[in-house]
Design a protein around this nucleic acid. Structure first.
Lengths: 143, 143
DNA sequence: TGTGTAAATGATAATCCTTTTCATTTAGAG
DNA sequence: CTCTAAATGAAAAGGATTATCATTTACACA
């Protein structure tokens, strides 16, 4: 068992979660892969070591690990896809985590970073996604 | 009909798409709202002006408008949620739009922008999402 | 102003992905 | 070893999105 796995196991225990074989397997699978894996990917991998594991358990384990910030989730939570008028490149968003309000902001030039990444990684950058999550003023007051 | 609606209509025509009443209604609904709207939201709004419109048409229209960059989609395309080991705050991602490979990068400090936004909008920022989409070197060569 | 045709529509069904439910099992404290 | 709350997994439910296909329609061209 590698260091990261031990650390995750310890963190689970610290927060009062039981360390089940199923959770070990999920943690092992996610720690062993350098790639981003979907819940279905992880189910498949975990299934090799633990054939009776249920998909539900994968989802539940991922939710816990993500909440404890032991794993990293690509794309912010909730369902994707909502739309507004206007071209994507000219502004970005701040989304209220409580009420869902979306505020746009502009005036931030991300192209220097884009150039640096293109140079360092060889990627031909086609676009980006920059969003902030937080609490709007209203929801701060109502808390 | 407002200016933005006319521009969108013109752009559709330019690209060889027909300007149907249904598309007009969807465009009108999205242009009239300052908020981000889900496909379901838009269906509801469009339905008021065009009671026989189908949800399928909403999806198809949104897909076209997004591809032409006439509207802005919140969250990058495709299905959400994949996971990797590690805490979210310490790195960001570049995702290949062809093969799906994910490359991490770090060393970019977003906190100055975060502070500026907090000051300007009153939001209490909880987190952010910064991702780049592009083509990795392999996929550039294979094209 | 008609007419023909490819494009667009919408009802329905099919697919996914994710969450809920609930009876059963189990980790781990004592 | 025992007990209990937590965890599991099968199944069903739910929700969002996509595919299918017969019908309708926008609009280019006569």
């Amino acid at each position: 068992m590698r260091l990261t796995e031990k650390r995750i196991a310890a963190a689970l225990r610290e927060h009062g979660y039981k360390l089940t074989p199923q959770r070990r397997v999920v943690i092992g699978a996610i720690a062993a892969s350098p790639d981003h894996l979907t819940p279905a990917d992880l189910y498949q991998k975990a299934h090799q070591d633990h054939p009776t594991i249920g998909l539900t358990t994968i989802y539940r384990t991922l939710e816990i690990l993500a909440r404890l910030e032991l794993i990293c989730e690509l794309h912010a939570g909730g369902s994707c896809r909502s739309y507004t008028i206007g071209a994507p490149e000219h502004h970005h968003h701040i989304i209220c985590s409580v009420c869902g309000e979306v505020v746009d902001f502009s005036g931030y030039d991300i192209s220097p970073l884009e150039k640096r990444l293109s140079r360092e990684t060889g990627f031909e950058i086609e676009g980006h996604l920059l969003e902030f999550i937080g609490r709007c003023q209203n929801c701060q007051q109502n808390a």
